[in-house]
Amino acid sequence: MKQEIRNFIFNELIFVAEPTKFSDDDNLIDSGLDSMGIMRLIMFLEEQFSVTLPDSEIDPDNIKSINTLEKWILLHKA
């Protein structure tokens, strides 16, 4: 799951010179993930992992890193 999220983010949303050195805890928002990126990311995640992510939970705490994203998705996949 992490790899799929990483691929989408680094191919489609933000430009990171060396994605391989970007850790799963590094901050995506500080690296340029903005509101437009978040909107596309959520549409991707919902479709890719067949999950509904509640509007009220869309916030930097859940979106800030690959790890928090994975945790958030798994919470709703159960």
Binding site: I29, D34, S35, I38, S56, I58, D59, P60, I63
Partner: peptide, 9 residues
């Protein structure tokens, strides 16, 4: 500004 990242808020 941070509200742009949390549409429901």
């Amino acid at each position: 500004t941070h509200l742009t990242l949390m549409p429901s808020r």
